[in-house]
Design a protein around this nucleic acid. Structure first.
Lengths: 316, 316
DNA sequence: TTGAAAGCGCTACCAG
DNA sequence: CTGGTAGCGCTTTCAA
């Protein structure tokens, strides 16, 4: 059915190993034959068979991203940036929104070259059975894993957030975030906020967003605001949470100062200026991909398992 | 490196073709040998090589979803539902956030069994060069394509929206949507709204959301509301646009009646009740996958190229 | 510079 | 019921 090397070889009157070489731009083939073969291939609409290639070369040139929670905006931005970085490295990226173990298993069967996983806790820990067979890099929080993990230091971000507010004279600060959660990132943010405020003698309150999405935050804040008012300095746990908050203060004349976690460009589109803390998402993407490629291309490098990335503050 | 059928065969003292059959649960193998082989395979952590399989059987059991704009909430919901439907059909789904032509080309090289593409206009039209070689189904608007497309009848949805408002006594209606766009879905929604209002002698206004995201909508509305007030009946072009609108009317005591396009469960999470029109996303997913599978499993079925799905109204 | 041939891991067919 | 074997499309030696 589909055009193969052999078909091209016949058309060109050469052997199919020559065609193979020509199409890979091998120096072992004359420019003239190369050109002829390439033209024919194009004309015949040749599409390389990755399965065959992968079978013999043990390389599929594709990497898999495991991303079960498709719907958080900040993560979405990261995914696009990872896609770009992967492309730049000469690979193709594909994402699965299945549960992590299933996805990783399938990636293995498909003989992908590597996988990136958004680490969210125990449910996203990939078993050794899998990670022994394919390079894996995680994005998350510092924890013991048998594959490298990029730590974006949520704690440092929160300290930076509080410092930023204090610098502007705020000594009373509200934290809006997901309080009742098992998501380790959220826990770290909350805990660090508390400890750091105590250390710095800052008056603080914790306000539960009751989840991570904008809608739940907005609803939860409505209830809160029925009997309370917000302080003049606010730390938000994420982009989506900030959006939920903005529902309520959008039309307010006197706006509070908001420092939000998640350092993504998307904040620029918002009308209300918001300070932002976190590792810029391009840096995270760059770092993840570099690490993974290194593991794919060099066999068992003895490397630090935890890569530290440090947050920055941005003001639009 | 990785365990192969041969390795298992040696361990079990059988031929590797027997192992192949046993692992596929073929009736041609005794239960006893089957069990032994399966156990050994498990124990040795055998992972089938999809490349090899695909090479000989011409089947990868995976389908690709092309989804370049990762960040619209309604679409996100659809993607998860497609993933579920694909799984139920015995396939694995993988998504690419690359541009459609690149993605489709890669899917072809990877010898995936089919592709689903979110059709948004000319830039997402897949060339015959590709579609001749792999079954494709699109989700979008009725248009001429050389592969089947699921039409969710945006026009009918808009009529339904206006009817719903009229039923409740509204004779003045605002439409909030992306007005300056090349996205055919947005155009159809807007145009139908206009024509239908004229036909029904409804007083209407068009308000530009200046894009499809919640943020831009919110900003644009802020400007609008500086000099205007909204009518008591509003049609919103999408879930995200509705969210943008809610920024402004959240705290209002007297709420307008909102009918939003996009029929997804997510609306249930919102505090303000919103009427919803559109084809429920589970139905879209189901339909897309069924169609694709049909094309994968039966060769060139002479089939209607356009599948019509009709909208429903929902009130939480 | 080109060609021949082995072999990647697997399925499917045919022989026993 | 089990084994042997051809061959899927390709890369990669090795020979010519």
């Amino acid at each position: 059915m589909a055009v193969t090397l052999k078909d091209i070889a016949i058309e060109c009157g050469v052997s199919y190993s020559t065609v193979s070489k020509a199409l890979k731009d091998s120096p072992l083939v004359t420019e003239a034959t190369k050109r002829k073969i390439k033209e024919k291939a194009e004309e015949m609409n040749y599409i390389p068979n990755n399965s065959a290639r992968s079978l013999v070369s043990n390389k599929s040139n594709t990497i898999g991203l495991i991303w079960p929670a498709v719907d958080r905006v900040a993560v979405t931005t990261l995914a696009s940036q990872i896609n770009e970085a992967v492309k730049k490295a000469g690979y193709f990226m594909v994402v699965s929104i299945d549960d992590p173990i299933t996805a990783a298993g399938k990636f293995l069967e498909l003989r992908f070259d590597g996988v990136i996983v958004f680490d969210e806790g125990e449910e996203t820990r990939l078993p050794a059975k899998i990670t022994n067979n394919i390079p894996v890099v995680a994005y998350g929080v510092e924890r013991e894993l048998d594959y490298p993990i990029i730590n974006v230091n949520h704690d440092k971000s929160m300290q930076l957030a509080v410092d930023t507010l204090m610098d502007k004279g705020h000594s009373e600060i509200d934290y809006i975030g997901d309080l009742e959660t098992k998501d380790i990132r959220q826990i770290i943010k909350k805990e660090t906020f508390i400890h750091y405020c105590e250390e710095k003698k800052v008056n603080y309150r914790l306000i539960d967003s009751e989840g991570l999405s904008e809608e739940v935050t907005s609803n939860s804040l409505r209830k809160f605001l029925a009997n309370n008012t917000l302080k003049r300095g606010i730390v938000c746990g994420s982009y989506d949470i900030t959006m939920g908050l903005l529902h309520h203060i959008d039309k307010q004349a006197e706006k509070p100062m908001i420092v939000s976690y998640d350092n993504i460009k998307k904040f620029d589109a918002i009308d209300t200026p918001v300070y932002t803390v976190g590792v810029p998402s391009e840096k995270i993407a760059e770092s993840l991909v570099q690490m993974l490629i290194k593991h794919i291309e060099a066999e068992d490098i003895e490397e630090e398992q935890i890569i530290q990335l440090y947050p920055e503050v941005t003001y639009p």
